[in-house]
Simulated assay, not measured.
Amino acid sequence: MPVYEWVGKTLSGDTVKGTLEASDERIVRIKLRRQKIIPVQIKPKGSGLLARLSTPKKVKAKEVVVFTRQLAAMLEAGLPLVQALDSLANQQKNPYFKEIIFKIKQNVEEGTPFAEALKQYPKIFDRFYYHMVSAGEASGNLDATLKRLALYMEKSLALKGKVKKAMIYPAIVLTVTTIVLAIIMVFVVPTFEKMFGEMGQALPLPTQIVIEMSRLTKKYFPFFLVGTVIFVFLLKRYYRTERGRLQIDALLLKLPLFGNLLRKVAVARFSRTLSTLISSGVSIIDALTIAAKT
């Protein structure tokens, strides 16, 4: 819950100050009046520029999973949705996520459906999450739907973790190989070139090719680095487009080693997504559309 700093006056005219936890400034004023304190100034604690910059503006997928799992357990135990959201917001350690949960709770209190309140934060609760909650609300089985959703997200995170672990070793080998080759071409080969030159003997063609490659690498190395950075930047921009994503993904699926792994991951994710949506009451057409976009 947000913390507010306040300054006030007692009935005798003395100035007092302190901090209070409350959902908004109105609640702080009510609490102070109950203590017979006249509020003079109320402001959120840590509202300065440094505090705003230090506050994380990101919610991790694991935090969303924990939130979903706990909300499902509270609803299954018979707790009202608003009270469950209030309790989860108070327990949340991420200040940014805490603020969002409080806003969702306020929207629900004002009569907004839970799914529509979540839809306002697509970076945290994606299209799949929204449709699952919407189907759960419509069927009256929100707690069961949230349990399925939490299970799905846990399995997705586990699968993503396995893929990352499988990619770590090849990535390390490729990085180390590139660094070693660069060191050899820039520092080692020129030393051998000088030694061979002092010997005054004709060099074999393969050796001449390596020496020439070393010269080119040493001469154009800064341009190579800049070109690599620009290429990666443009590739990411192109991948964000629909056409670019289609072409690059098709190319990745044709890779000798990683293509088969990526294909299995995609099929597993599609099957799990479709199964979860259909079991939650989403129509087959909508389920296929959502699964295709996730």
Rank of each mutant, 00 (worst) to 15 (best):
E154V: 06
G161L: 06
A171T: 14
V133C: 00
L205P: 08
D143P: 05
F192N: 05
R240C: 11
D126H: 03
T178A: 15
V173K: 06
M185K: 08
V210C: 10
M199T: 08
V176M: 14
I124H: 03
P190T: 00
A166I: 15
T241A: 04
E242A: 13
P170L: 13
V186Q: 12
L142Y: 00
L216S: 12
R245K: 11
I168F: 03
F233L: 15
T228K: 08
S214F: 05
E193L: 07
E137Y: 04
P170K: 12
V173M: 10
T217D: 03
V186S: 04
L205H: 01
K194L: 14
H131M: 03
F233C: 09
I209P: 06
P206Y: 07
I179V: 14
I179S: 11
Y130A: 07
A135N: 07
Q201F: 06
T145C: 07
V226R: 06
F221V: 02
I168C: 00
F192C: 02
M185C: 07
K162S: 10
F224G: 09
L146D: 09
F125D: 07
P190E: 10
H131N: 15
E212A: 11
Q208Y: 03
G140F: 01
R148Y: 05
Y121F: 14
Y129G: 04
P222R: 01
R215A: 09
I168G: 09
G161V: 08
E193H: 12
E212K: 13
T228H: 07
L174V: 13
F233M: 13
I211W: 09
A202V: 05
T145H: 00
Y121E: 12
F223W: 14
T217R: 13
A182M: 12
D143V: 04
K147R: 14
K236W: 01
A171S: 15
T175M: 15
L216C: 08
K194G: 08
Y238I: 03
T175L: 15
E242T: 10
G227A: 10
R237C: 06
M167E: 00
V176W: 07
I168P: 03
L146G: 05
R237F: 13
A166S: 11
M199E: 10
M167K: 02
R245N: 11
V180K: 02
A171C: 12
G161H: 08
M213A: 12
F192R: 00
P190M: 00
L225T: 02
A144W: 00
L203D: 14
I184Y: 09
F192K: 07
V133K: 09
P222A: 10
L203T: 05
L146T: 06
R237A: 14
K160C: 00
T178S: 13
E212G: 15
V188Y: 05
P170Q: 04
V210F: 11
E242R: 13
V229R: 02
V163E: 02
F223K: 01
A138F: 10
V188K: 04
K165T: 06
T145P: 02
K218N: 05
Y129Q: 01
L225Q: 11
R215G: 13
